[in-house]
Design a protein around this nucleic acid. Sequence first.
RNA 1: GCGAGGGUGGCCGAGCCAGGUCAAAGGCGGCGGGCUUAAGACCCGCUCACGUAGGUGUUCAUGCGUUCGAAUCGCAUCCCUCGCACCA
Length: 922
Amino acid sequence: MQQPHRYDHTAVEQRAQRAWREADVFATPDDATDPTYVLGMFPYPSGELHMGHVRNYTITDAFARFERMQGNEVLHPMGWDAFGLPAENAAIERETNPREWTLECIERMRGQLHDLGFGYDWRREVTTCDPGYYRWNQWLFKHLYENGLVDRREATVNWCPSCETVLADEQVEGEDEHCWRCGTLVEQRDLDQWFLRITEYAEELLEGIDDLDEWPANVREMQRNWIGRQDGATVEFVIEGEPVEVFTTRLDTVVGATFFALAPGHSLTSTLVADDPELGSEIDDLKARIDSSAEDEEKRGVFTGAYAKNPATGEEIPVYVADFVLADVGTGALMGVPGHDERDHEFAEKYDIEIRQVIAPEREAGNGDGENADSDGDGANGIEDTDGIDVNDAAFTADGVLVNSGEYSGLDSASAREQLIADIESAAAHTQYRLRDWLISRQRYWGTPIPMVECPDCGYVPIPDERLPVTLPEFVPTTGNPLEADEVKSWRETDCPDCGGSARRETDTMDTFVDSSWYYLRYISPDLDELPFDTERASDWMPVDHYVGGIEHAVLHLLYSRFVTRALSDLDMLSVEEPFEHYLAQGMVQLDGETMSKSTGNVVSPQRIVDEYGADTARLFILSAAQPETAFDWTEEGVESSHGFLARLHGVIGTIADGKGGIDDADNTAGSDARDGADTGDVHEYVEREIDATIVSATEEYEDFRFNRAVREIRSLVGLLAQYRDYADSDRAIVERGLVTVVKALGPIAPHLCEELWDRLDGEGLLAEAAWPTPNEDTDGYDRERRLIENTREDVRHIVDVAGIDDPEHVEIVVAPAWKHRALEIALGADAEENVIGAIMANEEIRAQGDAAAEYGQDLAAERRSLSPALSAGREEATLRRATWLIEREFDATVTVRAGDDAEEDTASNAKPGRPAIDIEA
RNA sequence: GCGAGGGUGGCCGAGCCAGGUCAAAGGCGGCGGGCUUAAGACCCGCUCACGUAGGUGUUCAUGCGUUCGAAUCGCAUCCCUCGCACCA
């Protein structure tokens, strides 16, 4: 129709952004009371925002804006995970230094975040490479140290040869063990390193998962797996007079232990082979095999010549050193039970070790599973009561009933375990975790210096708080650790805080995951000088209410953060134990089904989209393409469709606001156009109710982060408003209310355009600060009304189609008579045993309907269990009346709605509550 | 191997937790109509089968089962995705 106003997104965006900035809309005052804390994982400043970031921050921004409009105080900050190895490489490549490079990247990305219209409280911005931030990493380290949660010890650790640094276990991925950052295969090295003792919290962290009911199930499961709790027992086997402890989850099989195995790295191993050089070199071979990332190769072992005394039987069993025994699992030694452990079985077969059955399947009545019951059970090796199992073929690994175990025979596995713990002197119940301590040393420059000095006299001494931060010296481009370079010798040389003698600074820096393990606390009081965060305020504002970010951090960042939060809580720094109440793992952004990634080159540049279509289009497309947690494909068509919608909305509101639009003057008087049956008042009410219904459902969708559904609701309201505006007697006030609703409800998603349109519609103040729309009327039952209208319209179409009516003249819609509604109510209220027909016929008015009543009663009785309540006859009639204009427009026919009681008998008899009778005249 | 999550109409994807209002939302693609000189954009319908009055039949991986009633609950099987894995 009218010339659409040109939609100059760049101008619109700049205007809106300036307005927000000037009004300081997104600031969270320090005296806020428990604001809604909405947080996206802060980015590593690589220099360029990618679509994953855009998706992440669009989600948090839309939600934060929604919360603000709901009248809640909101904390929505942003910062930079600014330390990390890539900056060192980039600095060397570009002949600059990591600091400058990083700050430039931050500058650029901050600009991009601005351009996208994300509303952050920039006064709370944190940058982890800033000494004002990382001094608190050092402070935290020191306080953990003082509380016994820091350890320096020699260990076999993961070394990435490409990054030239060690890595924590969590940062090594996959079966092939590659570096999480660069993908290089890691190696093992024995080094003295700093650890945070996260294992102290293993049980707490595990139990805490149960309460994280707003986390995705898979993330919770991944954390459970990672912590890997195992309940079992420790028990000692004596080897040449030396007790050696093993851990086992199957103490019930101890009688079946026919060999003993040590890890090549076990301390006893070297003792046992000390005076046998040949044996020693064989074991060195084994060690070498383990180091060379042993795939699923055959297990190998070496018999040491020694014997271990089985604590349950007193039997002497051979001691092997075996490559499948890992030094860092359990105690680095194990009892071999070939009959009931697949791995031990394989080993025993190879070295011809006795395989003994001590567990039989529990016989249950009706266990018809013949699988093991009839497999040549008579070939059994003279052992009775083995229930047909032959452990020579394969280990039987399930729990069962003990056999061949002397006094323990007949006990079930669980009871046997308890009994054995009680009976064997050296045995004790023990719980073991797979979780390892968090190795935080990094042999890199661009990280937080670990605030320790090594004094020849006092050993390692922490640097006192008042001398923090330990700042980084100038960057020296070099291979290896730049902090070990000659050029920074003067930085390394220092004095001992304890004795004042000359000492050497620790040259390892911290894992950058330390930085991110508490940054969400620093936002709460970013300028505080005395402490990392204000305890009182943090206890009020925490936990983060909604945390959004990639699932790749399921066991890294998210686990470390949980640990640090608990540790801080135990230091009385914080009164919450879990940092993130609701965690939303956003899905991938894909292109042609492939994850967008720089390495493969299939990326869409956010910058290009913003330039070409505008930030609002990008945001709208991203949020309408899929639910936040599922992956979606980026498509140009989708982007264009989103852009088209915004441009149309812009056009529609432009024409209306300018008063030259397609609607009549607001004060037109209705009724002159005497359409049969369609009272214009009903039409208006219909639209009003649809506006209300849209508000209610959009609100619900927002609350659940289902922006895609909210968008659908809003778009369909726009469609309705367009139809209504074309309707001859539309009411300008209602159109405006509809548009205001659309603008408000879409505001969190496409904030710039909506801010502009809000202004055009003469909205007061800024949309970003406006109140969320509320329905005019109680929307109870609107669902049923919508369904009734939709069903009825579909039925009309259906009839027209199936009956082949070319040009319907008149549509008569007849609501079921009141007595049928009453009958339905009675049927619904009837007790299960009650006779429905009887109950209905007890009503005099219904009984008066004679055969019709009996017939309908039978219908009700037949369907009694699937009956659902309907609108009252009067409401049904009113609802349909409000919708007649839609049918009139669609078929260009007149439409009448009648109450069943006033209509002709024939027609009315077809009507049921919720299902009006329809009569169409051609 | 262990664990978790899944398998829905041509495709994508809701529904499943709280069984009936589900032939099953929405989008895409396809078809028809409107608008238009035409195309595009946009708007309105249709899109499992049969059917000249809103009907009937057969569907939600497969097979059993529970129930008056199952896409939804249970069991088994097959397949897919992800995580962990020589873990004692």
